[in-house]
Amino acid sequence: MKISKSMITVAIVAAGLAGLSGCKNTSGTIVKTDHLTGASTIITENARLAHRVAVTKTTYDEVNGLKRVHITLASDRNKVLRVDYRICWFDANGMEIDPQTKTYRNLIIEGHDGVTVTGVANSPAAVSSKVRVRETSQAE
């Protein structure tokens, strides 16, 4: 049996695809809000996700002595978009408060729709928040 060039090419391409399928980009979009000054920063780490979902509005308030943040996410796709988001809180020293208790929640956004997500601080000591959005398909 003769091993032709085309067979070798096919094998290399298949191996390359198999290797690439294991590479998952878990970076996403981050929204940092300082609840004392009101300053809000949006950091885009994943261009693919940024083209699909945009942060259109960030507001914050305080309820029962606890800080609360509202983030509006809008989909730029026609199809249903599935993303995960996690809202974590930091004290005045910049230390994350109870990181284990804040989970990634899933969110389903209909085509070209916007959804507002809300997070409440788990301690009165919280002064800033960080919302991290990632693609659900990229979660392990």
Partner: peptide, 22 residues
């Protein structure tokens, strides 16, 4: 593995419990 994974069964999974509690 991370505590919050994507759903793998239709049963109640750890991430469902964690999200509900939060």
């Amino acid at each position: 593995v991370p505590l919050d994974r994507t759903a793998s069964t239709t049963r109640i999974e750890p991430q469902d419990i964690r999200r509900t509690v939060e």
